[in-house]
Amino acid sequence: MFNPRDIIETLANNVRQTTSPFGIPKFMVNKWYKDVNLPKEGEYMLITGLMYQFAPFIEKSTQYLEKYEGTKMASLLKYARYMPGYLSGIGLAMMTSGKEKKDAGQPLKDIALLLKKSKVNFAYRPDLDNYSGILLYDMGDQKGFVAHAKKIAQKLKDAGVKKIITVDPHTAYAIKELFPKYTGISFEVKSYFELLDLGSKDLGLEVTIHDPCFFGRYLKLSEIPRKVLGNLGITESEIRNKGEFTSCCGGPAESISPSLSNEIMEKRVEELKEPGKPIIAYCPICLGNLKKSGAKVEDLSTLLVRHI
């Protein structure tokens, strides 16, 4: 386990300086929209919170952290902010292959497609699409989080945004629940699958759904993707822990203890593999983490796009 103090300070520093926890400038990560023609005005503003985009970087940094965990080098982490080449920032971005980065953007493209198919009137503006700061909140850097959240919430407000579509559970929770509480600025927030209208089909497929903690428990939205799938004739297989009682994938532990994260992930994957059906995730952190196990996991949006 790494010293949380070092990690927190590193993250906080990065967010403060670059608005990104990994110290990677936004333009380097957020590229997906360039292939998709999206309007700048609409009823809803799509805010990705950059979580999908960060996924490959998280994975990469974890690979490095894993190497060091439990070694003397771990204690050097506190100097991380001085060694961007290794563990954060542009160096990390450089080490992450273009393909990985591109793959990470695919679900976002898919989501945009699904929303279009569902005739949702939405817009996307990369300048308004910022990291939510949720990691700072989770880590206990309350000051850092509030400062960051105020900044980006104000920006959205100033841009006249009232309704927001989010794509991942962490950003959704941050904007829906935390922003009103800590910034005093409220938006009507929908997760993309709440707005989907994909007609009905009788595909006769069965999948195993892994609910992210924040959708399952905090936001209690896990029934909605099931409805969307149900309309297409996709049923879910029975597993012990799901919905409000879903089990953590271990993802968010990566930055503190990759080995703990792995241990939890493996246990969860075992459960998910049990029915022998394709596994569906709908959170970039879960997706990335579960994929590491080698199990067949795909994003909800990927599955949906394939079948419409």
């Binding site: 386990m1 949380p4 989770d138 206990g140 428990r217 409000e244 089990s247 968010p252 503190i256």
Partner: peptide, 14 residues
């Protein structure tokens, strides 16, 4: 340090 092993999965609260 123990505190940061918690990922706020929310099961305990739930």
């Amino acid at each position: 340090d123990e505190l940061w092993r918690c990922l706020h999965c929310g099961l305990c609260t739930h």
